[in-house]
Simulated scan of single mutants.
Amino acid sequence: MVNGPMAGRTGRADEVAAFVDFENIRYSTINSYGREPDPVVWRDKALKYGLMSVAKAYADFDQHPPYVRTRLDVAGFEMNHYPVKRSQDSQGREKLASRSDLNLVVDIINTALVRPDIKTFLLFSGDKDFIRLVTTLRNRLGLRVVICGVPGSVSPDLVAAAGEDDPIELEQTEDIDISVIQSISTYVEQLHDGFVPTQSHMSRSLWRFVDRSKLPSEHIEAKVMEFLRKQVLIKRQTINGQGNELVTTELNPAHPLVIEALEIDASVEVVDAEGDEHSAEDEADGQPEWREEPVEDEDLYDEPQPPNLENRRSRSPWEQEFSTNRNDRPRRYMP
C-alpha cells in the first residue's frame, strides 16, 4: 500500500492524473460495503500524490442515480458519458456493450503523450482488462501507476502489473448494521408458521422493515451478502412443512453484533449449524475475532449480481402455500 505525501512544495507541486472506471468502483463498493461510493474519498486519495491536473470518470451515467453526478462535481471529477451500445443476437435477445472502458484507455494514453509532466497515474478500477494499459504506461513510458480498487474486487494480476496499489477502504458504520440486524429480526418474526427465511426472499422483502434513510432499498441485497461473508447471517439446511429440503438464512446468535443489536443474553443456549447446543458467550470466547471466511459450499450462496438488479426469483411463501393446497385438492375427471 502506498502512503506517499504530496511532493515538491519548494517548487512546483507534482501533478497526477486520476481516471475512474465508475461502474467497477460503484458496484464493488455497494457489494462490499452496502452503500454508495463517495468521490470525495477518491479526490483525497489522489491529492496524497500531487495536484489533480486530470480527473475523469467514465460510465453510461444514464444507468446510475442522478445524485452521483453532483458528488462527482463536488469532488472535481469530469464526467465522460458513453451510452452503452445495444444490439440483438441471433435469437433476438438484447445485448449491451459498454464503450466506457475503450474511451478510458484512449484518454489515458493521450494524456500520457501530451502531458509528459505528469508522472503519476491513478487508475480507479480492479478490472484485469486494463493489464496491457498498465504495462504500457509503466514499462514503455516509464510512468508510475497506482491501482486504487475496492478490496476483494481487484485483480491480483492488475496490481502486479502496476507494482503499487492503494485500496479504497471505507469505515464500516456499526450503527447501520445494528439497525439492519433489528430489521431482519422483525422480518423473521412476521413470517407465518411453517415458512422459513431464505436469502432470496429476505433480499426481496426486507425493504418493508428497513429504515431507508440508513439503507436504501437498492442496497439491501448487497448488505445481505455482506452479512453472509461476515457470518452475521448463517446458512442452515432444513426441511419445511411440505417435506422439501431448503437452505435457510438466519441471524447468527453468537455474533457480537447480533448479541448487541438484539440484546441477547450471552448465557442463553443456542444451537449452531451442526445442531450442537452451547452458550452464545462460549461461542464468542471461542472466536474472539470475526473475520471474513471463504465459502466452503458455493452452492449455498447466490451468484453476485449488480445490486440494482433483482436476484434470481424464487416462489414467495404465499405462492408455495397456494401450490401446496392446489396439489392436495381432489381431482375431478370427466367421462
Rank of each mutant, 00 (worst) to 15 (best):
T70G: 04
R93A: 13
D117P: 00
N110I: 05
L113D: 13
R115N: 14
K85Q: 06
H81W: 02
Q91L: 13
S87G: 09
V84Y: 00
T120G: 08
K119E: 15
L102E: 12
V114C: 09
R115K: 15
I109G: 10
S98N: 12
V84A: 03
V106S: 01
D101V: 00
D117Q: 08
D107A: 05
S90H: 05
A112Y: 14
I109Y: 09
Q91D: 15
A75M: 11
S90V: 06
N80T: 10
D73Y: 10
N103A: 03
V105M: 04
A75I: 12
S87D: 08
T70A: 06
S98V: 06
K119G: 13
F121V: 12
G76V: 09
L104G: 01
L96R: 12
Y82I: 15
S87V: 07
A112W: 13
I118H: 06
D89L: 04
K95A: 00
S90D: 07
N110S: 11
T70V: 08
E78V: 04
I109L: 14
K95S: 01
L104N: 00
D107S: 05
L102R: 13
G76Q: 05
M79F: 08
A97S: 11
L113W: 12
D117L: 03
S87C: 06
G92M: 07
L96D: 09
K95R: 07
P83W: 07
A112I: 15
N103E: 08
D73W: 10
N103Q: 10
G92A: 07
N110W: 04
L96Q: 12
A112L: 14
I108G: 02
I108T: 09
F77I: 05
A112C: 15
R99Y: 02
P83F: 10
L113K: 11
S87F: 10
P83G: 10
L72H: 15
E94D: 14
V84G: 00
R71M: 14
I108C: 04
S98H: 06
E94R: 08
A75K: 09
F121G: 09
D101N: 00
D107Y: 02
R93Y: 13
R93E: 15
G76H: 06
D107Q: 04
K119H: 12
R99Q: 13
L102V: 15
F121K: 05
S90K: 03
S90T: 05
L104W: 01
S90R: 05
F121Y: 13
V74W: 09
D73A: 14
K85N: 05
A75H: 10
I118T: 09
R115Y: 11
Q91K: 13
R86F: 09
H81Y: 01
R86H: 09
V105A: 04
F121S: 07
